[in-house]
């Protein structure tokens, strides 16, 4: 048996003329916190719904521990879904909501009660067992939805934008909570989000989606440091993306000049260059490559906007004490190692 818990192979799903998923393949390891990240409408929910059993793909395979998952009926799949809308049962109290999944097993009443109480304890809902969902705050509802989905101890818990309905402060608390709960229960999480910060702070690995296709699968750090294409470079973190032409030993940009850089793209091709704002140093120079158009104090640093002679805009994080005035001319210095070219 391989160590991959879930294998998704060449999955394609169309809704009429819309291709929600296009030939998607990925592997998810046991006990992983895996994030599906991408802009709205890119097919994240569709992928979760296929794994949960609410949609069926047009082609492709989903294997769990190397056996076919798609042939298992929705209600018996060892997978549970936490819905984007929470979908709590409005007429049942917190206890009945959480124990609902267990009542569909062969457990005795006593066992159901004990297991439910144990989960309520672990997720911190003790004071609310008798309340109905509409008597709970958003954060509490979110916890009930999580507890309900985890109660059957699925092999994989699918979470569709679990934190998007919460305000920022509770969202950050819940990120920590989610990690703790995932660790406590020892369950693999697949978490959908369109928020890159959330994906980066939560996940072990991230699959970046765009228009139904996977653009890159990697650890958060790798995605930030070594994006393999322009979409990922732009989507993850702040970045300056410039259009340049490759040379045999680097690239040439009309505003920045020639930068030496080893690559395997070949000479004379149009390339996209990524330089992160923190990789650039600015030095005043009256005949510099750019002019500062904006300088905003942002706590520990200064956010500087530089306009190149090519009219392209480059953002730079500078030291807060740096003596950089709006209107002054500067040169842009960076280590070619910090530059990515595609």
């Amino acid at each position: 048996m391989s160590q991959d818990l879930l294998k998704i192979r060449n999955l394609t799903k169309k809704f009429g003329s819309i291709t929600a998923l296009n030939n998607v393949s990925l592997e998810i390891k046991n006990n992983e916190m895996f994030a599906l990240l991408g802009p709205s409408g890119c097919g994240k929910t569709t992928l979760l719904r296929i794994i949960a059993g609410f949609e069926y793909p047009d082609s492709g395979q989903v294997l769990m521990n190397d056996s076919d998952l798609l042939s298992i009926p929705t209600r018996t799949r060892p997978v549970n879904l936490m819905f984007q809308s929470y979908a709590l049962f409005p007429h049942m109290d917190v206890f009945s909501n959480i124990s609902y999944g267990l009542t569909n097993t062969s457990l005795t009443k006593e066992e159901i009660k004990n297991q439910t109480n144990e989960i309520i304890e672990k997720i911190g809902l003790g004071e609310h067992v008798k309340k109905k969902p509409n008597q709970l705050s958003g954060g509490q509802q979110q916890r009930v939805a999580l507890a309900r989905a985890i109660a059957r101890k699925p092999k994989i818990l699918l979470l569709d934008e679990p934190l998007s309905a919460l305000d920022k402060k509770i969202r950050q608390e819940m990120q920590i909570e989610l990690k703790r709960i995932q660790h406590d229960f020892g369950i693999t999480f697949i978490i959908v989000t369109h928020d890159q910060d959330e994906a980066i702070s939560l996940a072990n690995r991230i699959a970046v989606f765009d228009k139904g296709e996977i653009k890159q699968i990697s650890t958060p750090q790798e995605l930030y440091e070594n994006p393999t294409n322009e979409f990922v470079a732009d989507f993850i973190g702040e970045g300056n993306i410039l259009k340049a032409t490759s040379t045999s030993s680097g690239f040439e940009h009309p505003g920045l000049g020639t930068v030496n850089f080893s690559h395997s793209i070949g000479a004379g091709k149009p390339v996209t260059v990524l330089i992160r704002p923190e990789s650039i140093n600015l030095t005043p120079a009256s005949n510099g490559a750019g002019q500062i158009t904006d300088a905003v104090f942002a706590g520990s640093k200064k956010n500087i906007t530089v306009k190149l002679t090519t009219n392209e805009i480059v953002r730079v994080y500078a030291d807060k004490s740096a003596n950089l005035e709006v209107g002054s001319h500067v040169n842009l210095l960076f280590n070619p190692q910090d530059v990515r070219v595609f």
């Binding site: 209600r75 018996t76 879904l81 049962f89 999944g101 569909n104």
Partner: peptide, 13 residues
């Protein structure tokens, strides 16, 4: 919310 019925199925009912 149509997800409520789906949640019931998902939870094994």
């Amino acid at each position: 919310d149509p997800s409520i019925e789906e949640a019931s199925t998902d939870l094994g009912a």
